[in-house]
Design a protein around this nucleic acid. Sequence first.
DNA 1: TCCATGACAAGAG
DNA 2: GCTCTTGCCATGG
Length: 118
Amino acid sequence: MKKISDTFFITETKNENPIYQQIYDIVRLIPEGKVANYGQIAAMLAHCTPRMVGYAMAALPSGSDVPWHRVINSQGKISQRAGGDGENIQRLLLETEGVEFDSNGSVDFSKVGWKVLK
DNA sequence: TCCATGACAAGAG
DNA sequence: GCTCTTGCCATGG
């Protein structure tokens, strides 16, 4: 059992629960205006790797309630899957929440980085 | 079953 | 600061 926040706990089940479910649970904990990177999420689920987090996001249905747009890579940049449609949808969603992007199109983790209390 | 691929990260050179 | 390499594992052909 890991403590994510004061009111949130997750069970460290290895085979019982799909790992994805835990990843989604973590992502759902990210508050508005904050962002987290894959490594951070993977670190919270010690038996998880950034690869899996990325894959979990890719497998996420579009109608999901998971704020996938708050998950970006370790460089503070958005990893866009397709070059075509919905290019800036993620950035747009973040800006709507108050996340600022610099001229490089990256966010400042020291400002909007999600800090988790362990 | 094997092989290639993928929204990544961290370390080495 | 940048490129290359390795770890890790679900998914699809």
